[in-house]
Computed example of a mutant assay.
Amino acid sequence: MKCPDIYSFKLLCRTAIRPLGLNIATLLVTVCLLFACGFSASAEVTLRIGYQKSGYLTILKERGNLEKRLAPQGVTVRWIEFTSGPPLMEALRAGSLDLGHAGESPPIFSQAAGADLVYLASTKPSPESVAILVPKDSPVKRIADLKGKKVAVGKATSGHYLLVQALTAAGLKPEDIQWAYLSPADARAAFARGSVDAWSIWDPFYAAAQKDLDARVLTTGKNLSPFREFYLANRAFVQSQPALIKPILEEIQKTADWAQTNPQAVAKLLAPEYGIDLGIVELAEKRKERYGALPIKAPVIAEQQQVADTYFRLGLIPKAIDIKSAVWSGK
């Protein structure tokens, strides 16, 4: 039963039992409220989750297991789709979301902008799922050949970090190329019409470019970028609903376990959701290793701190940030 308006309910109860005396009346009002609210200590909750098509939250959404798990607690789940991590993190920072997921870069830029977010868990790394692409007949054969060229990439995305790392490994500086900050959809269009010379992007957009545009891989994230996914929450949500965190992470883990052992079923589930060919999804899933909702331990914290320090050293974020202080304690 939905809890009634507390002020109206108090007035009704006190009017009926006022003759019994103040203390007894107060006690009975409390009892009345407990019965009316089903002895629940919390009001009904709407859990707002931001998701991208490249992550396992999409599978969780499609299977509906989280809704089933949380419904007995009076929790309604609302799913909100984003094209990439940066706008999702902005919504999390603004308090428009409670929870979401992103690669290594978006939360760092969001923290640097003042977001009070919490790293809840991470996936395994998946460096082969992010790549720098060039057209099949491009004269660009190695990263060093990108000097002076225009490269499409999403700002503050995993593609951004891969590009930074690849340039550094090739002895180039960020200013040695022309940066075209574009969303995945706009970057694909620019790449297809030849308006950019290269594109740094992740799956399934990466797989789609290979299949549809015959794109050639210049490099993947192997030995350059871990491409790890993080599950993050607004700190206000974590503080107000701490009991919901573990059930959510448990359902994400169950979904990941199922996905890892059922790649064909995953592809069939996601293809219509993505609106792309089944073969493209199968290609993306084949090289994906980003499974699970794993506790964030010291090596992962150090890895993420290195990413943050790299962005700060290059002047891409305005201040140094501390990753460890934003990691969920598990309590």
Rank of each mutant, 00 (worst) to 15 (best):
E175M: 09
S8F: 15
G279L: 12
C13D: 12
D116E: 14
I296A: 04
L224A: 07
V238K: 00
Y311M: 12
F230I: 11
I248H: 01
K246R: 15
V300S: 04
S183Y: 11
P86G: 06
A25V: 08
F230Q: 07
L316R: 11
T168W: 04
P135Y: 04
S129T: 10
K222P: 00
P295W: 13
I323N: 00
K150S: 08
D5E: 15
V31G: 03
R69I: 11
A94D: 14
L66Y: 10
A326S: 04
I252S: 03
F191S: 02
E289H: 11
D197F: 09
V45R: 03
Y119D: 01
K124G: 02
A233V: 06
Y56D: 14
P295K: 08
A131L: 00
I49D: 06
V31S: 13
S225Y: 13
K136F: 15
S8D: 15
P127Q: 04
P139T: 15
L20K: 05
V196L: 05
Q305T: 10
T76G: 00
I321H: 00
L92V: 09
R228W: 12
S325L: 02
T255D: 06
P72V: 13
A113S: 14
P247Q: 08
I296C: 06
R287M: 06
Q210Y: 04
D203I: 06
G114F: 08
L11T: 14
Q241C: 11
D212K: 12
G21A: 11
I248F: 15
G38R: 08
F35K: 08
F39A: 06
A170H: 02
V75N: 03
K297F: 10
L92Y: 07
S200T: 10
L92F: 03
K10L: 15
W199I: 07
L213Y: 05
R287E: 01
K124W: 12
S8R: 14
D277N: 10
V134L: 05
L27H: 14
L57T: 10
A284P: 04
T76F: 05
A166P: 03
F191D: 02
L162R: 01
F9R: 10
A113G: 09
Y231M: 13
R188M: 11
A152M: 02
E251A: 01
L244W: 05
A243D: 12
L244D: 04
G148H: 05
I143R: 00
A293Q: 05
A115Y: 03
T76V: 09
T15K: 07
K155W: 14
D98H: 15
T261R: 13
L213A: 09
I321M: 00
Q253C: 02
S329I: 09
Y231N: 06
L22S: 10
V151D: 07
A25S: 15
S195T: 13
G279Y: 09
A180K: 04
A115F: 05
D257R: 09
A259K: 05
L47C: 08
E81Y: 08
L278E: 13
Y181V: 07
S54K: 11
T310W: 07
A43T: 06
R78S: 15
Y311G: 02
S158M: 04
K331I: 03
G221I: 03
T310R: 08
T157G: 01
Q210M: 14
I201F: 10
L163W: 05
G85A: 13
D176N: 10
